[in-house]
Design a protein around this nucleic acid. Sequence first.
DNA 1: TTACAAAAGGACAAAAAGGTCCTTTGGTTG
DNA 2: CAACCAAAGGACCTTTTTGTCCTTTTGTAA
Lengths: 145, 145
Amino acid sequence: MFNKETEYALRSLVYIQQQNDRNRRPGIMEIAREIEAPRPFTAKVLQRLVRLGFIISVKGIGGGFYFDPEKPELALKELILATEGGHIFNGCGFGLKQCSSDKPCPLHEQYAPIRDAINKLVSEETIQSLVRKAALGEKNHLVEL
Amino acid sequence: MFNKETEYALRSLVYIQQQNDRNRRPGIMEIAREIEAPRPFTAKVLQRLVRLGFIISVKGIGGGFYFDPEKPELALKELILATEGGHIFNGCGFGLKQCSSDKPCPLHEQYAPIRDAINKLVSEETIQSLVRKAALGEKNHLVEL
DNA sequence: TTACAAAAGGACAAAAAGGTCCTTTGGTTG
DNA sequence: CAACCAAAGGACCTTTTTGTCCTTTTGTAA
């Protein structure tokens, strides 16, 4: 569904938030290992997330990545828009010619509720809400990222 | 949502069926022009669709592509499975680690109905049903592929 | 039955995605 | 303030996707 960059970004951010909650600021090595992604590529992805202002990085001994606790929670939609644009949220999703409510493609009516559901999901869920859900599930040995 | 091959395949097949309904068998040049796709690449995509048995090709003068009228309608899901595999239909769609009802990822519950809706849509809709919808819409100058 | 139109096929090319490596920069801490 | 650790950054490589071009094959119809 998403490209690798978005996928690694999602997993990295969830892991960072989880560690922040334990008063830790994980570094690239640790993050890449835990989310099972290639280290150098993870570094590049994290770099972009810092430039986008989603997380803060600290260099030097004991450095690492963390969320600004002052900021509001990060909706999945914000992240996805930044890493792969809005193509998932607009258009008919079937690659047919430009499709809108004026000029619907043959699948427009049936696809609209699906697109709306995706939009609702990624707008309501945040990195932090995922962390809370994962924490709940962990107690029952059920949920894993 | 889909890769270019799937997209061109979808559009080509709809166009071919539309022309078949008018007792015509369009060739590569015509198809590529009408669906606004690069000719050589369209040729390659059509070649694959023939090998997959979705359509029949005729060489020589007056040649072109057509659906076997004896065959049942072609569900979008069959096409998509052939051109890009089942990754859209399985998995949690969020690129998180292996996710199933045993070991759900934090988004599993919310995403499941979306995945099911997509599955239902592409299982029920066929190339031919899209053609019928497009024909209906055309009368009202509304639908365009 | 042969000429030719049109698809098939294979080799190649460009662009984008995904990934690696090495050097530079800049905080942190002793 | 000096040393060092870890992130930043840039150059480069690989693979996949997308796209092109040219030759071969084959079916059709005059």
